[in-house]
């Protein structure tokens, strides 16, 4: 019997329809899943990256909560114009502890992947409270309400969750989460434990008010560490190669 293949044939054969649908959908699925198997070779072998300190992590959560990513990317693409403006292109290694990552896809404001250290803590706090007070032509909304106390009761739980997803937080880090968080927001506190657990974590009165730990402290601490962990001066082209 001559067999003419047409979509009428598929539509009338439930099993054939099922099998062909499965194949089609799995091609799409594989295209998404297979790259994850190669992620080990995607991540560059650079030094300096570490999980977020508790205060930075809380800042990151507020960054996500407020939707800062709707206007700001954290992904410097490997083009000349971006390198001239923002610095070295972003590495996979630099967002490997980001769950979810904040690469973003919209730049109403500038990319923030390397904003750390570009401005003073004071500037960040003033700018977040009232962007137009420091940058008259800005269209960024004001976030003055971030001056309220930071509720960090669940920071240990957040870290445990991230650990379940593969971020290498140790028991010691989780046990000391509250203490480390308070120490980072208070330059007078003993920062030895914090420094031993989180290399290059900077202590400071990020919001200019040392009386209490606020959401502003957390967001500014987060912004000030962005892109500062990898020392590109010491990175060799070999380390940047994705195998």
């Amino acid at each position: 019997m001559a067999f003419k293949f047409s979509h009428g044939t598929i539509e009338r054969n439930l099993i054939l329809l099922g099998v062909l649908t499965l194949i089609t959908v799995s091609i799409g699925g594989l295209a998404q899943v297979v790259p994850l198997f190669t992620v080990e070779s995607t991540i560059e072998r650079v030094e300096g990256t570490r999980p977020y300190s508790p205060l930075e992590l809380m800042g990151r959560e507020i960054y996500v909560r407020e939707g800062c990513y709707t206007c700001h990317s954290q992904m410097i693409r490997p083009f000349r114009d971006e390198a001239e403006r923002y610095g070295h292109y972003s590495l996979a290694a630099e967002s490997m502890y980001d769950r979810p990552f904040q690469w973003g896809s919209k730049r109403t404001g500038p990319d923030l992947a390397r904003v750390g250290g570009r401005y003073s803590d004071d500037w960040h706090a003033q700018h977040l409270r009232s962007p137009r007070a420091v940058v008259p032509e800005s269209v960024m909304p004001p976030y003055a309400f971030l001056d309220r106390p930071l509720d960090y009761r669940r920071v240990g739980a957040s870290m445990a969750t991230l650990r379940a997803l593969g971020v290498p937080y140790t028991d010691e880090m989780i046990r000391n989460a509250d203490a480390d968080l308070r120490a980072q927001a208070n330059p007078e506190a003993d920062g030895a434990g914090l420094a031993s657990r989180y290399a290059r974590a900077r202590q400071g009165v990020f919001d200019g008010n040392s009386a209490e730990v606020t959401e502003m402290d957390a967001v500014v601490a987060f912004l000030q560490m962005l892109g500062t962990l990898v020392q590109f001066r010491d990175v060799t082209p070999e380390q940047l190669r994705q195998q």
Binding site: V34, P78, R80, A83, E84, Q243
Partner: peptide, 22 residues
């Protein structure tokens, strides 16, 4: 195609092209 060595016949890699342009 995410297989080591399969970089495509042009040999183009965005990072290397960007770095070279810079």
């Amino acid at each position: 195609i995410p297989i080591r060595g399969l970089t495509g016949v042009t040999g183009y890699i965005a990072r290397e092209a960007g770095t070279a342009e810079l």
